[in-house]
Amino acid sequence: MNKKKRTRRTLRTQRSSPALVLPLCVFFFVSLVPFASFVRGRAAVLTAAAAAGGTIRGRVELRRVASPVERRPNVSDLGAPLARDVSDRLRSVVYLEPAPRRAFEQSQPAHGVLDQRDERFVPHVLAITTGTSVDFPNSDRIYHNVFSLSKAARFDLGRYAVGHSKSVRFDQAGIVRVFCDIHSHMNAFILVFSHPFFAVTDEEGRYRIENVPPGTYSVVAWNEGLSSESRPVTVLDGGAAELDFTLR
């Protein structure tokens, strides 16, 4: 009996709810209008500010491309190992140091991927901002064990099979060297920046850092653990500054 009453009450409450919800919704949306216009205005200011920034572009020339890490000559192997690691060593990272103050105002959590494929990490170099989560899928039919003992991020993802993935969130800026505990020749770099003013070069060494607020900055080029001297550059509003580097 009690149960029936309770059910009826519940149904009544449900039936009467649209009558209450409608005015509430109207009030809610009306009250949102000023807030939404404030947010839109703020976003417009930020976009305008970003769009009003300049560009730094140029090329990083590598005098000597870092050779891939060879396998350790394991005399215990009963047969020849798979082909050597041919990870891309041509890509460099160019970044501002220090970053413009405004860089720290906007922080958008992002996602990156560092695949494990053919006994190598792809890409070999990954540049991200702090707060980014990086997925480490295993695309090989053998186990891998991703780990890092770097100061900026210390983690060990254990062994997992093909089709599985684990993630790490990088909250501290710095250079993170990533290895596989099973295959000593597998290695990668993750460069974690506390600002968005960096770029990974293409295979030709070209880079482009956009939306840089006007001002004078120091710019650094990095390749395979080797950094260039920081070089000054002045960015004008809407302008493009050219800056080339030579490494090694």
Partner: peptide, 9 residues
């Protein structure tokens, strides 16, 4: 931590 390699590996 890496092996020493010559002659293109």
């Amino acid at each position: 931590s890496e092996p020493i390699a010559f002659a293109d590996g």
